[in-house]
Design a protein around this nucleic acid. Structure first.
Lengths: 172, 172
DNA sequence: AACGATATGACAAGGTGTTGATGAATTATC
DNA sequence: GATAATTCATCAACACCTTGTCATATCGTT
């Protein structure tokens, strides 16, 4: 904390950035915790969680509705680990909400995850609650502010995704 | 949800809001996952996780450094459940980084959680890595954008925190 | 046919997060 | 002093999330 006098301005600048970054990541941590807590509550009567909601939401998109999504695509879309996604998918499969189908044509290694008819029904039911949740959660935000926040989070996500990942332990 | 006919435009508006909200919460979900993943990696060589980082960061603030923080204050600050915080604190206590001290004066029920000298040393070491992490993660953001994102997340957090919590099962 | 890369599945270990229920100590109130 | 509320701890169950490793099947290339 003993800065030379000549760099006073840039140090103050770095301190300001650190302080804002610290608050920013704390808010992200808090908001994320609250999102899972309140979101899970919003869809609780369907026996779902925010993660299952996210998976079903991904599979219900126009493009994925019929074709389904591969596990790899889901991993990239949701940005979770394969092992974790396996657990969520297993639970959804046990509930009969999604199915893994092996594509008859094309790459035989790929298995496409799809909503079952039961899954589509549950998703349709959930959508009403989700719309209400979104409306309540973003009540204080204008559409422009929502777009602004979305874009900033989008950039932050990309930035975090681009950080140097595993740090090679060996020199190789 | 019962709009008079004259507000037909608001339906398109509602659809736009839903679409933006959907993207917004997905980005929040992704960014949060990445924050924990990359953040834990950033402080991995200290054997810490993002949650322990958050707790130690809270305890290292000027106000809390000497007085410590009660469990209730930490819960409000980090917005996690009591049972979860107990686990994190237990691990930090096992590592000798924090201690629970019973206040000699005042409310005898309160126990103040404080950083131990070892905890302060570890935190000081971690700070360098944290500064680097913040700088890398927010490299593409100007200071003004950081403040903007921080303020938006702050409002979102408050909004989510104000949602009707447990939904009383009984009429009471 | 043999090879390496890719896609998936299964198992393990550790940490985080929720809810629910129980119990103990202390404080404030009657 | 008895009672109720607050603060904290603990046990349990379940879901999520990461890393790591091993195994299997398939694809593309040699």
């Amino acid at each position: 904390m003993n800065y030379p006098a000549s760099t006073r301005l840039s140090t103050a600048d770095a301190d300001a950035r650190f302080d804002v970054a610290n608050r920013l990541f704390l808010r992200l941590y808090q908001a994320s915790n609250l999102m899972h807590k309140t979101g899970t509550r919003a869809v609780a009567r369907h026996g779902a969680t925010t993660q299952q909601w996210a998976v079903m939401g991904a599979l219900s998109r126009p493009g994925a509705r019929e074709r389904g999504m591969t596990v790899k695509e889901l991993i990239g879309f949701l940005m979770v680990s394969r092992q974790n996604l396996a657990g969520v998918l297993a639970r959804l499969e046990d509930l009969g909400l999604v199915e893994r189908v092996r594509g008859t044509e094309g790459d035989g290694r790929l298995r496409h995850v799809r909503l079952t008819p039961a899954g589509e029904r549950v998703w349709t039911d959930m959508l009403a609650d989700i719309r209400r949740y979104y409306a309540d959660a973003l009540d204080a935000f204008s559409l422009e502010e929502c777009v602004l926040l979305f874009r900033l989070l989008d950039r932050l996500r990309d930035s975090l995704d681009g950080l140097p990942p595993p740090e090679p332990t060996a020199s190789d």
